[in-house]
Design a binder for these strands. Structure first.
Length: 562
RNA sequence: CGGGGCGUAGCGCAGCCCGGUAGCGCACCGGACUGGGGGUCCGGUGGUCGCAGGUUCAAAUCCUGUCGCCCCGACCA
């Protein structure tokens, strides 16, 4: 590709609307442009990266027996009504066609797969199957953010496995896990595989593939010692043991102390010896008082699992009516609402709100001084002990780049996807679903590898392998040599970009760094004077002067080194 | 949906408080010089000041409404 005639609109200045590193660099390097909130145009450089990622995905999916298909973006409402997912998903784009028929835009394709399987799979002899597609998904996200990391329209590789039973599903699931590891390794990413929440959708087991990055939206807890790794919405931990104070229950005045920090400071105690009381409201179950240790944060996803339905925090106005005291002084004693306490609190003695404005109570024992049930509710803090081996956990921010999920028979039963087994008995097909976001792979690669000058692509997904800079295109010797080298690279199967613009050298070098192509070959004075070119690694900045006939070999060597 | 911020040329911003000819840098076009890390000089092009009402002799500026975008939180099969 010739830069002089291509759409590669690099920006000298930082776009104001971009916060995340990858977002800024994708805009500045001319990979993408934003059409609307969470809706992007992919320009040639970005498209080439997506194509490279997709090629790797196809190779690895095909290697485990995946068959590529393409399912529609527009779906009839009927299949979603059959699966029970038509209502209650605010992210679903719905529309009505000219005949008044209800339709939606596909946010995932379990329904379509189950519909297809119901028609085409009849016998155990037809199983197992792995179907996949690389296709556009539409989700009306409440808050698109961080460039291409969370968008309302995005390409996803989604695959679905069809198996006769759980044991076969385990094999399909394992094959996917191994394929995913290879895909992300080949894409040059640092990543972790973690246990993840199966949500309320009735799945059995799920894992997420997480790429560490400050721009990520998730957090994972990991144990370096035993390898335990889980999304914090699921991760469990053992907090260090505490020394509890002795003494009888007594009220203490805590005027104007509303936060845990204020109460602890006023009483001169460790915040870990206090209890944070949070009033939530469940749509069906009504108000519920949630207790976590003073230094802990409630993880609402854990509360959802504990309560069985999604709860919202009570409005501050609702609190006094239910507990007799305003936010800041509420507690479990005498509360006439059900109480769920974090299991960390079991067996301890704490300071709690008195349900009387300006007062707290010392020496309170959960489940002794008030009735409650225990559940795992708090988000893991770094340094707390691994429940498996007891070593300290670390907590890391990550980008979710893939997930694998054992679905079971939910969708096959809902849409009538059944088969006849060896004995002639009809059984539901056992399904799994698996997703990868190519745009997130691209963004994660930028996040993990960029330096102060711009993107540093892994060679495997770089838009080009080689970036030829002709320092002065008006020098005929340089220009001709550049074109000749360009042709030679192509003959050797190297993806090559040539900067043949009539620009100052500084502009070209800055753009080359920004674009992040792994190997740069510079044709300039050294070429004119002594027939040498500079071959330089973007990542290490190592530069070698080599004669003409050694260029291709040197390029290959630097590409190998990543 | 809750909180905060921003909409003025392709990009980054000033002007708004205190109403009176719409500006700066970069980019872009023409010319001259220059040519190894975002050059210099000269001359240009480009704007319904997000949109709609209102106040006023006069609105980018004041008032009301509305739309869009960003960030934090909530949500996220």
């Amino acid at each position: 590709m010739h830069l002089s005639t291509s759409l590669v609109p690099t920006l000298r200045e930082e776009p104001a609307e971009a916060e995340a590193l990858s977002h800024r660099l994708m805009l500045r390097a001319g990979l993408v442009r934003q059409l609307a909130a969470g809706v992007f145009v992919w320009l040639p450089m970005g498209q080439r990266v997506l194509d490279k990622v997709a090629a790797i995905i196809r190779e690895e999916m095909n290697a485990i027996g995946g068959q590529e298909i393409t399912m529609p973006v527009i779906h009839p409402a009927e299949i979603w009504k059959q699966s029970g997912r038509w209502d209650g998903i605010p992210e679903m784009f719905k529309l009505v066609d000219r005949h008044g028929r209800e339709m939606c835009l596909g946010m995932t394709h379990e329904e379509v797969v189950a519909w297809l399987a119901a028609r085409e799979i009849k016998s155990y002899r037809d199983l197992p199957q792995i179907w996949y597609q690389i296709q556009t998904k539409e989700r009306d996200e409440a808050r698109p953010r961080s460039g291409v990391l969370r968008t309302r329209e995005f390409v996803m590789k989604d695959s679905y496995t069809l198996d006769p039973d759980d044991a076969a599903l385990d094999r399909s699931y394992g094959a996917h896990e191994r394929a995913y590891r290879r895909i992300f390794e080949r894409c040059g990413l640092v990543f972790h595989v973690v246990q993840s929440d199966t949500g309320m959708m009735g799945g059995h087991s799920a894992h997420e593939f997480m790429a560490p990055s400050a721009a990520g939206e998730d957090e994972i807890a990991m144990c370096a010692s035993c390898g335990y790794a889980a999304n914090v919405e699921l991760a469990r931990s053992v907090p260090p043991a505490l020394e509890f104070p002795q003494g009888a229950r007594e009220d203490v005045a805590t005027p104007n102390a509303r936060t845990i920090a204020q109460v602890a400071a006023l009483l001169g105690i460790d915040p870990r010896l206090t209890v944070k009381s949070l009033l939530y409201v469940a749509p069906r179950g009504g108000p519920i008082l949630v207790l976590v240790r003073g230094d802990h944060n409630l993880h609402e996803r854990k509360l959802l699992r504990a309560v069985g339905e999604e709860c919202r925090p009570a409005h501050p106005d609702e609190v006094p009516a239910l507990l007799g005291a305003p936010v800041g002084s509420v507690g479990p004693l005498g509360a006439r609402v059900p109480i769920v306490a974090d299991e960390t609190l079991r067996g301890g003695t704490y300071v709690v709100g008195a349900n009387r404005e300006g007062f707290h109570v010392r020496g309170v024992k959960p489940d002794v001084d008030f009735p409650c049930r225990f559940a795992d509710l708090h988000a893991v803090l770094p340094g707390e002990a691994c429940t498996v081996c007891g070593q300290a956990l670390t907590v890391e921010r990550v980008i979710e780049i893939g997930n694998i999920f054992k679905l079971g028979t939910k969708f096959s039963e809902a849409l009538g996807a059944r088969y006849l087994d060896e004995t002639g008995q009809e059984r539901p097909i056992v399904m799994g679903s698996y997703g990868i976001g190519p745009a997130r792979i691209a963004a994660a690669a930028i996040e993990q590898r960029a330096d102060a000058d711009g993107i540093v692509w892994p060679p495997s997904i770089a838009p080009f392998a080689v970036h030829i800079v002709v320092v002065n295109v008006r020098d005929e010797a340089q220009a001709k040599a550049g074109e000749a080298l360009y042709a030679e690279c192509r003959e050797h199967g190297l993806d090559v970009l040539i900067d043949d613009r009539n620009e100052r050298p500084g502009v070209k070098f800055k753009d080359a760094d920004l674009l992040g192509i792994p190997v740069r070959v510079t044709l300039g004075n050294a070429w004119v004077k002594s027939g040498l070119v500079e071959v330089r690694s973007r990542r290490t900045r190592e530069e070698r002067r080599v004669p003409r006939d050694e260029i291709i070999a040197t390029v290959r060597e630097l590409l190998e080194a990543g």
